[in-house]
Simulated scan of single mutants.
Amino acid sequence: MRLKTLFSSIVVSATLLSIPLHSHAWVSNVTDSTGNKNIGSATLNWVTGPWSSCDASSRSCGSSTGKQTRSVFCNAGNLNGSNATVSDNYCQSVSSSIGARPNDQKSCSRYWGACPPPPPPPSPPSPPSSSSSSGGGCSYSATVCGLYSNNLGRAPDAGGAAYWQSQINSGVSPAQLQQNFMAGVKGARDCNYTGNKAIQC
């Protein structure tokens, strides 16, 4: 009768304290604080500690993954009010009442900030310009620029360049092109440069 009254008192106290009874289970042969294995001497429940910080490795930017851990142990609450850590086997034997052992680790991630955008791809190399071929800042073909630079010491004028380029495009040989070019020289400046050797000077 006294044992029944004591058990009723525990249930009432647990109700007043809002203790979830479904998370505990009565067990026997658990050594209590007196050192005796008394039948019905303890209630069992899983106890978890706080999660550790995420161990994801640091990066200069972006995210990295890792894990968090915590302690999980089986607690025996004795009738005299004391608590003791006991083997997980005790709690696992009553898992239908108190639930399976909680996880002691979980995955996690850490964010280290936005990564800068990737650099743009390199530009393709520019084709050599006619000016670099002729060496005189000429913006026409190397052949036309050479005609004017080598024979007159100057860059071509737009009209002359267009005419001689058409001659080149029509298939005139280099020797004939040179001859025709010199035959077309005129004007005081160009005549003086050629030493008045051109036909029309």
Score class of each variant (00 low, 15 high):
75 N>K: 08
125 P>M: 06
119 P>T: 06
3 L>K: 04
196 N>Q: 09
165 Q>M: 11
178 Q>L: 12
178 Q>N: 03
33 S>L: 01
74 C>Q: 07
48 T>K: 06
116 P>Y: 04
6 L>M: 11
62 G>R: 09
198 A>L: 01
167 Q>H: 04
103 N>Q: 09
45 N>C: 06
128 P>L: 02
191 C>G: 05
108 C>W: 11
166 S>H: 11
42 A>I: 03
132 S>R: 08
180 N>C: 00
74 C>K: 07
174 P>R: 05
134 S>T: 15
133 S>C: 12
63 S>Q: 11
194 T>K: 03
143 T>H: 01
88 D>L: 07
100 A>G: 03
138 C>V: 14
190 D>W: 05
122 P>Y: 00
144 V>W: 06
173 S>I: 06
15 T>F: 14
188 A>K: 10
175 A>W: 02
170 S>C: 07
32 D>K: 05
21 L>D: 02
103 N>L: 13
26 W>N: 04
20 P>N: 05
43 T>P: 00
45 N>K: 03
15 T>Y: 05
152 L>G: 09
64 S>H: 08
107 S>T: 15
8 S>V: 00
4 K>E: 12
84 A>C: 00
7 F>D: 01
159 G>Y: 13
122 P>A: 14
89 N>S: 14
176 Q>W: 00
70 R>L: 07
126 S>W: 00
180 N>Q: 14
126 S>I: 02
55 D>N: 15
167 Q>G: 01
42 A>M: 11
165 Q>K: 02
201 C>A: 03
104 D>R: 06
144 V>F: 02
121 P>N: 08
84 A>L: 11
49 G>K: 10
123 S>A: 01
90 Y>V: 14
92 Q>M: 14
136 G>A: 13
53 S>F: 00
125 P>G: 08
111 Y>V: 01
140 Y>S: 14
129 S>A: 07
82 S>F: 04
35 G>L: 07
102 P>L: 13
